[in-house]
């Protein structure tokens, strides 16, 4: 469904990604794990078109090359990105945030909003409220709800657990599993490797801009190297 090949990305002189390749197949939950600065967020930003890969990099989504496409065209193709730090529109209401998510006009907006409210009842209660007044967990739910509004075939989530209480993290990961069961393919970037691997089918380990390990989630959970570096021994 999504295929990344030889992706290299530079910030000025600094090379953030060194020719990485990976793949997400239809129906999967795939996770990219790695420490701070490994380049995880850079991968997602490049796939969504916010950053550009060097010549020779290739990103194909559903058989189409998207590596030179503008970000709004990529969203229209059914690839949505829940960015790191949620990035909801803090000065807009909850409802307006969801309407922005439906900007591409992929589905019936009213019905989709209703669906998001069913999944996240807290958002219905707070729909008229300015999003900046929501708690961290509610903001993450809004960010996911907003991304669902474009009816994505593939959803990329960047650190959805960041800054949340353990109970909320559980909830967010349950939601990810549910979304996947409902047919959305997921690409998940996480520092919380244990949680990420527990919901994923497959995983890739990123270290300073390179893929150093690729395996099924189960195998990665059991791998000594991963245990030592990311799961606390």
């Amino acid at each position: 469904m999504l295929k990344v090949e030889d992706l290299s990305v530079f910030y000025g002189q600094i090379q953030a990604l060194k020719s990485i390749s990976f793949e997400v197949k239809q129906g999967e939950v795939v996770t990219l794990i790695g420490a701070n600065g490994a380049g995880k967020s850079t991968v997602l930003k490049t796939i969504s078109g916010l950053l550009r890969g060097r010549n020779g990099s290739s990103i194909t989504f559903m058989g189409q090359d998207i590596s030179r496409m503008e970000p709004h065209r990529i969203v229209e193709r059914g690839l949505s990105h829940v960015p790191e730090g949620r990035r909801i529109f803090l000065q807009m209401s909850v409802l307006e945030n969801l309407q922005m998510g439906a900007y591409t006009g992929a589905g019936d907006m009213e019905a989709d909003i209703e669906q998001v409210f069913e999944r996240f009842p807290r958002l219905r209660e707070r729909q008229r409220q300015v999003a900046g007044t929501l708690s961290g967990g509610e903001q993450q739910m809004l960010a996911i709800g907003r991304a669902l509004m474009s009816r994505p075939k593939l959803m990329m989530l960047d650190e959805p657990s960041m800054g949340l209480a353990p109970i909320l993290i559980e909830q967010i990961f349950d939601i990810i599993t549910e979304l996947n069961a409902a047919g959305t393919t997921i690409l998940l970037v996480e520092q919380n490797a244990r949680m990420a691997l527990s919901v994923a089918h497959r995983g890739y380990v990123l270290e300073t801009g390179r893929v150093v390990l690729a395996d099924t989630a189960q195998a990665l959970l059991n791998s000594d190297a991963v245990k030592k570096a990311y799961l606390g021994g």
């Binding site: 969504s48 078109g49 916010l50 503008e70 970000p71 709004h72 969203v75 229209e76 949505s80 990105h81 960015p83 990035r87 909801i88 529109f89 803090l90 000065q91 807009m92 922005m100 998510g101 900007y103 591409t104 907003r146 991304a147 474009s150």
Partner: peptide, 12 residues
């Protein structure tokens, strides 16, 4: 408010 996030919504 947030140009990048707006792009991710599909806003041109």
């Amino acid at each position: 408010e947030d140009t990048e996030a707006a792009q991710l919504m599909g806003i041109n």
